[in-house]
Amino acid sequence: MNTQSSTHIQTLHKSNWVKSIGFVSSMLLLLLLVGMMVHISSGSLSIGWQAYLQGFNAQQSLVFWELRLPRLVVVTVVGAGLAVAGVALQALFRNPLAEPGLIGVSSSAALGAVFMIVLGSTLFGSVSYWQMSLAAFLSAGLATWFIYALATRYGKTDVALMLLAGVAINAIAGASTQLLISISDDLQMRSAIFWMMGSFANISWPSVTVVLVVTLLTSVGLWRLAKPLNAFMLGENISLHMGYDAKRIKWQIMWGSALMVGVAVATVGVIGFVGLIVPHIVRLWIGTDHRQLIPLSALTGAILLVFADWVAKTLIAPSELPIGLFMALLGGPFFLMMLLQQRKAWVK
């Protein structure tokens, strides 16, 4: 037995440079940089490369600093945050179909935010971005907790129940949102509807800072949970056996992902499927180890949304496609494809 061990150790680690973390992450970083450059240079006002070197004129400066850059930062950060939230929820539910949009977390966050837009102004006078984010976060967390309590027993998630509960929550949250909008005044209605479709069009620096800081801190926090997440993926009881406090980790995953979804939804509205598409692709590429899955999903999510937003703002220029709509067009078929894959696995 011992004589074989030395010969086996080489065959154990097939070094595959296409899947090496260094290669993958540098490719993704490069792609993100390209995407960001393409994104920031597109728009109705052309800013030539000379302007970047010689300085902007007043109009260019305004467009760059107050419109394009904040939008680019938010697109990048929200893409990363939604992807990481997807990874976290999928570990929690132990299923690749658990996605904030599909299971109703995003629409609950939206309900919380619209609740603030419509009722908050009457209750508190004026509504700040902070209050909207907080309301979105709380309702996202409650929705996650509710679905988890409903669909998971003894650490095992009933996938059908999870998705159906998502359908129900989406319906309830959607109808309640509509109801709130229908009792709102013109101005509230406009801002609520516009924002619900998911849009990066009106973004201010204070909200950029909040979404940036919250997403960064939460992602790093979840990344530090990578090992427990790996264990959790094997089963809740197994994570206990491996020395992790499963109950505490569950709460951290739930509220961590709710925080990122909440703040993303409060900033740009509901954008679905990022948390579904991105982790799936990254898993196929580099596997299921959360130490790599989380940072690389963050990168890939950022890339996806940067390009998607670029398409959304240039496809029918000078007007814009709402990014939420665009992502649904892209993500719907992807979701169907994943369902077909799961069906194959069940049949087997």
């Binding site: 491996m242 406090d245 596997g287």
Partner: peptide, 27 residues
């Protein structure tokens, strides 16, 4: 604590199901 226990004992539960792809070696 669970962390202390994990250093002393390992447990093979009756049922395990793997839901994400992972290689035997990684597992």
């Amino acid at each position: 604590t669970f962390a202390e226990l994990a250093q002393q004992r390992a447990v093979l539960p009756q049922l395990q199901n793997i839901v994400f792809s992972i290689s035997v070696q990684q597992l």
